[in-house]
């Protein structure tokens, strides 16, 4: 409920131009790196069946084996090939991340639009956002999981429910700043309906921002999925990176030499993919509206 976002200082036009030019260089570079990472991951996810040496569900080798030419990253506690698990895990982690972030963006944008455009309704909506933000996360999670059941779809829904609120705030701040712009006021005074103004004038101006939010939220969603799986609150039976870590922890891999091939890769992959989306999101955000940083 902080108003940091909306009260951020407005640098003078000259500053924006000046900094814009300077920033663009490395912002673009970082964005490109992020883009490449995301592209690689998406390719791996799509081509998983081709790239993976084994079916990740298949008990392909001796349980707990160290890396060998047959199993480049060794096998897990039931003899499943860890490399194949990593490759297929890309699918689950990316899907969960992207879909959950998209859902969160949708909810957040709608609430943010309404909240910013209709001030009275907006006040109520924003108090709702506040409540969501201060509720204790863990029990909320268990309640949701209990009523929705465990499945990948529900993990997506749960994550979306948990992360839409900040997006709503950012979008609302943007809409608030738009709502008083001359052309919006003009459109209204010319008798344009709310729906029309929202659709024609407000939405297009916030869409880019929403996309930036979405990309950044994807990174958060991937992290969240891994934490959920690790705590046993996701679905450990899904082949995601988080669940690989859950099993590594459950079967003591952190304390054996196996951490090098069982613990490090999934953690690095989570970091890597979250980084990819975060860089992309950062670049987009700087480009779209350098004044709106998520707090």
């Amino acid at each position: 409920m902080t108003t940091t976002v909306s009260t951020d200082p407005e640098p003078g036009p000259a500053a924006v131009v000046r900094r814009g030019r300077r920033l663009r260089d490395h912002t673009t570079a970082l964005g490109a790196i992020g883009g490449v990472i995301v592209l690689v991951l998406v390719t791996v996810a799509v081509l998983a069946p081709v790239l993976a040496p084994y079916d990740p569900a298949e008990r392909a080798g001796t349980p707990f084996s160290s890396p060998s030419p047959d199993h480049l990253l060794g096998t897990n506690d039931v003899g499943q090939d860890l490399l194949s698990e990593m490759i297929y895990g890309t699918r689950v982690s990316l899907t969960v991340g992207i879909v959950a972030a998209a859902a969160a963006m949708l909810i957040g944008t709608v609430v943010g639009l309404i909240g910013g455009y209709f001030p009275r309704l907006g006040a109520v909506a924003m108090r709702g956002v506040d409540v969501v933000l201060i509720l204790p996360f863990l029990p909320l999670l268990i309640v949701l999981a209990a009523y929705l059941g465990r499945s990948i779809v529900n993990t997506v829904i749960i994550i979306a429910i948990l992360i839409w609120a900040p997006t709503a705030r950012v979008i609302r701040a943007q809409v608030l700043s738009l709502a008083n712009r001359d052309y919006i006021v003009a459109a209204r005074s010319m008798g344009a309906g709310h729906g029309y103004v929202l659709w024609r004038h407000v939405l297009p101006k916030t869409m880019l921002l929403a996309i930036g939010e979405f990309v950044a939220a994807t990174s958060g969603a991937i992290l969240l999925e891994s934490s959920l799986s690790f705590l046993g609150l996701g679905d450990p039976l899904q082949e995601s990176w988080g669940s690989t870590l859950y099993w590594a922890q459950a079967r003591g891999a952190f304390l054996t030499p196996a951490w090098k091939w069982w613990v490090l890769p999934p953690g690095l992959l989570i970091m890597f993919s979250a980084l990819g989306f975060a860089l992309l999101g950062y670049a987009l955000e700087q480009r779209i509206n350098p004044r709106l940083r998520r707090s």
């Binding site: 970082l30 891994s226 690790f230 870590l245 304390l255 951490w259 953690g267 989570i270 970091m271 993919s273």
Partner: peptide, 24 residues
Amino acid sequence: VSSLTVMIALESTPQFWLGMLFIA
């Protein structure tokens, strides 16, 4: 640029994972 990248990477690190690695 490098510190920015490192920071964004750190922001993307799973907490439990880092903690467990530290213990190990």
